[in-house]
Amino acid sequence: MEHQLPEEKVSYLQILKTAIFKENVIFRLVISLCPSIAVTNSVRNGFLLGIAVVFVQVMVNVTVAAIRKFIHPRIRIPIFMLIISGWVTIVDMIMAAYARAAYKEIGLYIQIIVAFASILARAEMFASKNKVLPSLFDGLGSSLGFLGALVTISFFRELLGKGTLLGHTIVNAKPLLIMVMPTGGFLVVGLLMGFFNWIDIRFYGGKGAGGAGGH
């Protein structure tokens, strides 16, 4: 998980790819899980939270990388937390002002981005050791992976649970109502993880031990 390779050897595309697929925050690293259930009962909510995370992650990475030389190593974690909560507050206010309806449902989870291990982890592992531009791409990659996972999960849950996608009716029924409920969320994530592991084992000869489990 260490990204200390010399920068010139690693292309930005490579950084992006690793962060999105190989180290997908939800399905592979299994961290920052709470929103994967909480906000994925509709694609809109999943997408909005994903975007919020992309924004916070990129801005945090850029900020940390920009001022990394001035942060004393011993107080770096509190400083990072301060930076993260600052950006989260900004996103929170923007969402509250411009996406009222969605904010009612996902407001609490927007605020909780502050406790996302993945954001702190990227800041600590990558941004604090790298220049601004690579840090930007790293943040973009890891959070896009997150966004992708949220949209994938919410796609299945909204389609199966409500028969709609982004609020538009696709099938005129509610095939599996349970999918928009907590149980359905856990179930979809569990089955998707198992499915990705199966692909990994079947086609790439991986070990399939999905996720070491972290926090």
Binding site: G190, M193, G194, F195, N197, A209, G210
Partner: peptide
Amino acid sequence: RPFRGMPIAWI
């Protein structure tokens, strides 16, 4: 095998 560890915990 694909469900060992995390996936079965989620289920």
